[in-house]
Simulated scan of single mutants.
Amino acid sequence: MKTFDSDVEAAKHLYEAYNRLTKEIGKVVIGQDEVVRQVLTSIFCRAHSLLVGVPGLAKTLLIKTISDALDLSFSRIQFTPDLMPSDILGAETLDKDRNFVFIKGPIFANIILADEINRTPPKTQSALLEAMQEKTVTVAGKHFKLDEPFFVLATQNPIEQEGTYPLPEAQLDRFMFNIQLDYPTYEHEVEIVKATTMEKLEEASKIIDKEEILAYQALVRRVPVPDNVVEYAVKLVHKTRPTGDHAPNITKQYLDWGAGPRASQYLIVAAKCNALLNGRYSPEIDDVKSVATPILRHRILRNFKAEAEGISVEAIIGDLL
C-alpha cells in the first residue's frame, strides 16, 4: 500500500487525483459526471453499486473506462437464465497428470461488471453476492481470496421485467448505491455521436494505481466525523421506518418498510468520501444529503397507496431531507 507523510497530505493527493480522474474519464464517457462521481465514491469507500438504466447508455464503456483510469483488471459477466455459479467463480478440473486444479472464473478481477444481474436464478446471484460480502470464493471446500481492491457494479434493465429474478431486499442491501442512469441531454448526445463515429476512439489513460486506491480506501475510514453529522444520518434513516418513533406522516402514509442500520453506516462512509472529493477534511450535514438518495433509494419499500398515487421513492426521500 502506498504511504503518505500524513493524512492531510493523503487527502490532498486524493482530491487532486479525483479531479484528474474525472477529466480523463470525461474524454470517453460524456455527460455522466454524477454517475462517475458515485461509482468512484463507492470504489473509494470499498463498497459496491447497482446501476439501473435502459440498454445503450454506455454502462459497459463507463466501467471499462474507469478500470483503465484506475489501472485495474476488469471482467464483464453477462447474466443469463442458464448461468451457473461455476461460470462466475471457476471450477476444479483434471490436468494432464489426472490431478485436480482450480481454474479461476471471471470473478477474479478487481472490477466486475455483473450485467443484468436480475436475469439469472437466485443460486447464481448468491454466488456473486457471497464473493461481494466476504471477498473470498469457496469451491469444493477450498477458500480463495479475491484481489483487493474488489468492486462489483451490477446492472439492471428497468424496462423488460419478464423472465427476471428480482434481487431480494437483503441482497439489495449489500449495494451501497443504487445509481440511476438517465438518457443524455441533446447537447451531450451530439458530442457522443461525434466522438464515437470517428476512425480513432478516445481511451482513458492510467491516472492512479492499485496501491494508491488501497491507501485512499484506508484514508476514508480514518476521516473524523462530528457527532451532529452522525446523529443527522441516523435520524434520517429512522425517519424511513413507518413504525419508528421518528416517522413523519409521509412515511406512515406511503412506506411499508424502511432502511436498516447498514444505510446509516453507508451514509457516514459516503459522506466522508464526499467531503474528501470536495477538498475538505471532515463531512458536514450537506455531505450526508448529497449521498442520501442513491443510498436510500433501494432500501425503502413503497406501499400500494404510494404506487397508486404515483408518489416516487425519490419524492419521499426529498421530503424526508
Score class of each variant (00 low, 15 high):
Glu199Pro: 08
Asn303Gln: 02
Ile107Tyr: 10
Ile316Arg: 09
Thr60Glu: 04
Val101His: 09
Thr80Phe: 14
Gly258Arg: 05
Tyr216Phe: 15
Leu214Ile: 13
Leu321Ile: 13
Lys239Gln: 15
Leu61Glu: 06
Asp147Pro: 10
Arg46Asp: 15
Ser312Glu: 11
Leu214Gly: 07
Tyr254Gln: 01
Ala259Met: 04
Ile43Lys: 03
Ala58Thr: 08
Asn278Lys: 10
Lys252Gly: 08
Phe102Lys: 06
Ile179Lys: 03
Asp7Lys: 02
Glu211Pro: 04
Glu211Gly: 01
Asp173Phe: 00
Arg280Pro: 13
Val54Gly: 07
Val193Thr: 03
Thr138Met: 04
Ile213Gly: 11
Ser6Asp: 10
Ala154Met: 11
Asp71Pro: 12
Lys2Gln: 10
Thr243Tyr: 13
Asn99Arg: 11
Asn278Phe: 07
Gln38Pro: 00
Asp209Glu: 12
Pro168Asp: 03
Thr124Met: 02
Leu321Lys: 10
Ala306Cys: 07
Val139Leu: 14
Glu314Pro: 10
Ile103Cys: 05
Val190Ile: 13
Ala131Val: 03
Asp182Lys: 07
Ala127Tyr: 03
Lys142Ser: 15
Val230Glu: 08
Gln253Glu: 15
Arg119Glu: 09
Lys206Glu: 12
Ile111His: 09
Leu113Ser: 03
Tyr266Val: 05
Leu296Ala: 03
Trp257Phe: 15
Pro85Thr: 08
Pro121Ile: 14
Ala215His: 00
Leu219Gly: 11
Phe108Trp: 12
Val36Gly: 11
Ala109Gly: 02
Asn303Lys: 04
Asp71Cys: 11
Val8Tyr: 06
Asp5Gly: 12
Lys96Ile: 08
Leu214Thr: 07
Leu277His: 00
Arg174Val: 12
Ser282Ala: 11
Thr240Cys: 00
Lys200Tyr: 14
Glu191Gly: 01
Gly56Tyr: 14
Asn99Cys: 01
Glu284His: 08
Ala131Leu: 05
Leu57Phe: 10
Lys235Gly: 15
Arg174Thr: 11
Arg46Ala: 13
Arg221Ala: 11
Ile63Trp: 00
Val152Glu: 09
Asp33Met: 05
Pro121Val: 13
Glu134Ser: 12
Arg76Ile: 12
Gly26Asn: 15
Arg119Thr: 06
Gly56Arg: 11
Ile311Lys: 06
Asn178Glu: 13
Glu16Lys: 09
Asp209Val: 03
Glu24Leu: 11
Thr22Tyr: 01
Val313His: 05
Val137Ile: 07
Ile111Ser: 10
Ser290Gly: 05
Gly26Arg: 13
Asp82Lys: 12
Ser282His: 09
Trp257Gln: 13
Thr124Asp: 04
Thr3Asn: 12
